[in-house]
């Protein structure tokens, strides 16, 4: 874990972590920070512009949407949705993908062939279409969104990690562990997994960015977390019709998505640079 400590010294990772911490605070303390209830409709003051433009209302710092709901509060509560999806969806995809990748790469042979073909077939569906189809089948809701993303994206982990597992397993120390009496399970958990962990962590941070985007897409087409829960994609979809009257309503959630995705990508890139043994060796 010395590598993880080292990665904290990378400016990329530090900046990314600060950004993610901001979003995370919004998500956790949404109830305290948000000035208004995100669901409260103020039909008397719809499409109020942000406070700094003429006609702004200090009660709604970033204005209101077409139903008179406070944009700032909706953005803050939207962060909660985004973070929940990002964390649990990538965790789920990571677990399924990692388990299958280790089984596949470690044992090889027929098991590897079957898992490999399953991934091939799975990946031949366009991911967004597949998740849309899944959402139609599963119905809307936060847990369904998470499930859909897991079911689509586990292949990404499986494919990339398998080749890493394959490389690690070829090392004599894995064979040596077996000869010393380690069971297959012990050999995988104690010898192979620690070596694939850096890649796994990197992949997971990148997957979080993807999960945020997919969630936004699903919410945008109305197959996301459901109408009663604020989500950034949904806000963009709502603001689309009034884009000429109040462009802020569209820009602000888009910016929020951009900010979050950039943070996760930056984190992933920084981790990759510091944790990847091959990169750090050739860089020296």
């Amino acid at each position: 874990m010395a590598a993880l400590a080292r990665s904290l010294r990378s400016p990329r990772v530090l900046i990314a972590l600060v950004m993610i911490l901001c979003i995370l605070c919004c998500a956790i303390f949404a109830g305290l920070i948000a000035p208004n209830d995100p669901g409260d409709q103020n039909l008397l003051s719809i499409l109020v512009p942000p406070t700094w433009s003429p006609g702004g209302d200090p009660a709604f710092p970033l204005g209101t949407d077409s139903l008179g709901r406070d944009v700032l509060s909706r953005l803050i509560y939207g962060a909660r949705t985004a973070m929940l999806v990002a964390f649990f969806a990538s965790l789920g995809a990571m677990i399924i993908g990692t388990v299958l990748a280790h089984i596949s790469g470690y044992f090889g042979g027929t098991v590897d062939w079957i898992i490999g073909r399953l991934v091939d077939v799975w990946m031949s569906f366009p991911p967004v279409i597949l998740s849309l189809i899944l959402m139609v089948g599963l119905g809307v809701g936060l847990d369904r969104v998470i499930l859909a993303i897991i079911l689509v994206d586990w292949t990404r982990f499986c494919r990339v990690l398998r080749s890493e597992v394959l490389i690690v397993t070829r090392h004599d120390y894995v064979a040596a562990a077996r000869l010393l009496g380690f069971t297959h399970w012990q050999a995988i958990v104690r010898e192979v997994l620690p070596a694939t962990l850096p890649l796994l962590i990197t992949l997971m941070s990148l997957e979080m960015a993807i999960a945020v985007i997919v969630e936004a897409i699903l919410s945008f087409v109305g197959l996301g977390v459901g109408a009663n829960q604020p989500a950034w994609g949904q806000m963009i979809a709502d603001a689309r019709q009034y884009v000429y009257q109040s462009p802020w309503n569209l820009l602000l959630p888009a910016l929020a998505i951009f900010f979050t995705v950039t943070a996760f990508n930056l984190l992933g890139d920084g981790l990759r640079r510091t944790l990847d043994v091959r990169l750090s060796e050739s860089g020296r």
Binding site: A176, A177, L180, T183, Q186, R190, A195
Partner: peptide, 27 residues
């Protein structure tokens, strides 16, 4: 068995003490 390539035969993440007594955590 003693392996040919000591570079590949020793887990780079384990300390020497944990490598040579690895048999004691087996099974």
């Amino acid at each position: 068995m003693v392996f040919q390539d000591p570079q590949s035969a020793l887990n780079p993440r384990r300390r020497i003490g944990r490598i040579i007594t690895q048999a004691m955590e087996a099974g």
